[in-house]
Design a protein around this nucleic acid. Structure first.
Lengths: 335, 335
DNA sequence: ACCGCTACTGATAACGTTGTCAATCGCTCT
DNA sequence: AGAGCGATTGACAACGTTATCAGTAGCGGT
C-alpha cells in the first residue's frame, strides 16, 4: 500500500496534474495550491516512483557508469564523488560491469540503453576512449561525460587534467633536482593516458636539451608487477638512471621493490615519481612523490552529464582540471 | 522509436501476452510459438524495458547498495564481484551514497525504497549492523544481504568470515613465532569487526596463558593516521611489544611509519600484522602479514539477495567464508 | 454426442506518472 | 463592451509490461 500522487491530490483537494506540477516545480501553480500540496506530501510521506516517472519515455533519472575490471584507487574515490552529485540532483547511479573484450563492439552499451534507458553515461578510462561506445551513445542520443579522454576530445563532456603538462612538469621537477638520466615507464597502449604521459616526459627532456634515450623508456601495464619488472630492467643497466618517473603509483611502487632487491636506496640511489596520488602513495615508505589527480573535482563530470540531460543540449564541452605535483620522500637530488 | 513487445508480437503473428510469456520462460507456450517469438526478438534486437517491467509493482530488477563514505580497498573489489553477479542474474546494481549520520534513522533507506523500489539491498559494514536500517527493510519487506554483520546474525542473508577465529588464529601465529608481548589496535566502535577482532586477540592470549595487558590494547579508527598514533604510543612504552596486530591493513601501515620514526625496524624490532589483505598489503615494504578477506566469495551475497527476491522467501541464512592467513615479510620471531 | 480436463492463446485492465489539450477565470487593450 | 491574453486548473491518453480472466482447441472417458 504505497502512497501515490493520487493520495496526495485527494488530501490536498486538487487534481493529480497540479500535484505533479508542484513536484516538478513548474510555473502556473498558485501559491495556495503549492502550499496545500506540500502539506499533503509531508503528511503522507509521499515519494515519487522512479519507474512511473521513467516509463512515459521522457527521463529515467538513471546515470550509468560502466566500471573497468580493475578499479584503481582514484576511480573508487571518483565514484564516491559522482554518486553524491547524482543524488544531489535527484539521479541514481547504476554501475555496470564492463568486460573489456565484448565492450569493444558497443553492443553491451546498446543493450543497457535499450533496457535501462539511462539518461546519461559516465565513461571512465579506458572506456572513455572506446569509439564504438561513443558511436553507440551518439546514435542513441544519450549524453555522456568522459573522464580523462585522449582521443576525439570534441565528443561529449570531457573532464580531464592536462596529462601532458602534468607529466612534463613532473619530469621538469626531476630535472630541476639535478637528474639527467631519467627513466620512464609507460602504461598499456589502450589507455590514452599512457601516450600523453610519455609525451610530457619527452617534452620536458627536449625543452632542457637533454637527449632522449630510448633505453630509458620502458613499457608497463599500470600494475605493480610490471613496474617491478621494468624497474629491474632500467636499474640493471650499466649507466642506470638516477630517477624514474612511472606512469602511475602502482608501477612506481613496483620500481621501489625492484630497487630494494637490487640493493639501491630510494631516494639515495634512485629517485622515484608516480602518478595519481592514490592512497598507497602516502602509505608507502618512503612516501611517493606523485601527481595528484583532482578526484573531487572530477566528480563534476557527473554534473556535466546531468546538465546535458536537463538542457537537452549535446554540445561537447571540456573542463580541464588543475593537477598538483606532490613532493614526498621518494625524490631527492642525485648523489 | 524503440522496439517494444508489440513489434515483436506483430512480427511473430502472436499476441503480446504470448511474447511476454516466452520472455519470462513460462509454461503453456507451444514450441512453435516460442520459436517464432525468438526469431522476431533476434531480428528486431528487442530488449525489455526495465521501467515498464517494474511499474506494475512486481519487480524492479534493481539491487541497491549504499556505500560508506570511505571505501576500503576490499569493498571496491567486492563491488566488482557483486555487480557481475547481478548482471548475470539480470539485475542492475544501484549505488547510493550513505551518510553515516542521517542513515542512523533509516529514513534515507525508506526514501530509496519508496522512490526506487529496489528488489533487494546489499549492506556493507558498518551499515550491515545498523538496526534502524534493518528495521526499515524488514517493515518494507525488502530482502537484504549483510556483509560481515556483527549483531543479530539471525536477520537477513549474512555473509561473513569468522572474524573472531581469524583474529585468534593470527594472534596465535604471532605467539607461535615466540612473541609474548603483542599489541593490538582496534577499529571504530560502530564497526562490528572491531569488537570481534579484539575478542579473537584476547582469546588467543588466554588460550596460551599469556596475561592480557590493557596497556597493549589501543583504539584506532581503521585509518592510517590512527595506526600511526596508536603505534607510536605502544612502541614508546618502556616494555614495548615485540609484535603488533592492527585491526586492518591501513592501521598496520600507520604503525610501520611510527616504527620507522622511532628507529625501530620491521620485523627486526617489531613484527606487524594487519587484516583485509588489500592491495597495499603486498605493495608495502616490508610486505604485510595479514588476514585475507575472501573478496570474491563475498560476492555470493549478491546471489543470496537475488535468491531471496526470486523465491519470495525471507528466511535468514548465513554463509561463513574461509579466511586465510597470509604471511609476508612484516613478521618474524622476536629478537 | 457430451462433459471435463489440460494446453494454449489473447483481450483487457492495471501500474504511477507526465504530456497534451481544453476549460475557466480575471485582466488589459482597443 | 468585446477581443485577446496569461495564469491556473483538470480530464484524459499514453508509456511498455505483466496479471487476470476468458476463451478455444484437442482429447480421453462416459
Amino acid at each position: 500500500m504505497t502512497t501515490t500522487i493520487k493520495d496526495v491530490a485527494a488530501r490536498a483537494g486538487l487534481s493529480v496534474m497540479t500535484v505533479s506540477r508542484v513536484l516538478n516545480g513548474e510555473r502556473h501553480v498558485s501559491a495556495a495550491a503549492r502550499e496545500k500540496v506540500q502539506e499533503a506530501i509531508d503528511a503522507l510521506g509521499y515519494r515519487r516512483n522512479v519507474f512511473a516517472r521513467g516509463l512515459p519515455g521522457s527521463r529515467s533519472f538513471l546515470i550509468c557508469m560502466p566500471i573497468p575490471e580493475m578499479i584503481p584507487d582514484y576511480i573508487a574515490e571518483f565514484q564516491q564523488g559522482a554518486v553524491e552529485r547524482c543524488r544531489a540532483e535527484g539521479y541514481h547511479l547504476v554501475v555496470q560491469p564492463y568486460d573489456g573484450q565484448s565492450a569493444m563492439t558497443g553492443e553491451p552499451v546498446a543493450a543497457t540503453i535499450a533496457s535501462l534507458r539511462p539518461d546519461g553515461f559516465l565513461l571512465l578510462p579506458p572506456m572513455s576512449d572506446n569509439l564504438a561506445v561513443l558511436d553507440t551513445l551518439d546514435q542513441a542520443g544519450v549524453p555522456y561525460a568522459r573522464l580523462a579522454p585522449s582521443v576525439e576530445p570534441g565528443r561529449g563532456a570531457c573532464v580531464c587534467v592536462d596529462e601532458v603538462e602534468a607529466a612534463r612538469a613532473m619530469t621538469a621537477a626531476l630535472l630541476d633536482l639535478g637528474h639527467r638520466r631519467i627513466g620512464f615507464i609507460g602504461g598499456p597502449p589502450d589507455h590514452g593516458a599512457s601516450a600523453w604521459r610519455l609525451e610530457g616526459y619527452r617534452k620536458a627532456l627536449a625543452e632542457r636539451g637533454v637527449a632522449a634515450d630510448r633505453a630509458l623508456e620502458a613499457d608497463g601495464d599500470f600494475l605493480f608487477d610490471s613496474g617491478d619488472v621494468a624497474g629491474e630492467r632500467l636499474l640493471s643497466q650499466p649507466d642506470r638512471p638516477s630517477a624514474i618517473f612511472a606512469g602511475n603509483d602502482d608501477m612506481a611502487l613496483g620500481v621501489m621493490a625492484a630497487a630494494r632487491r637490487l640493493g639501491l636506496s630510494v631516494p639515495g640511489d634512485v629517485s622515484l615519481a608516480g602518478f595519481d596520488d592514490g592512497e598507497i602513495a602516502s602509505l608507502a615508505w618512503p612516501q611517493l612523490t606523485t601527481v595528484r589527480q583532482p578526484v573531487q573535482a572530477m566528480a563534476s563530470a557527473a554534473e556535466a552529464v546531468i546538465a546535458m540531460v536537463e538542457s537537452g543540449e549535446r554540445a561537447a564541452s571540456s573542463r580541464r582540471l588543475d593537477f598538483a605535483l606532490v613532493f614526498r620522500g621518494s625524490t631527492a637530488p642525485p648523489a
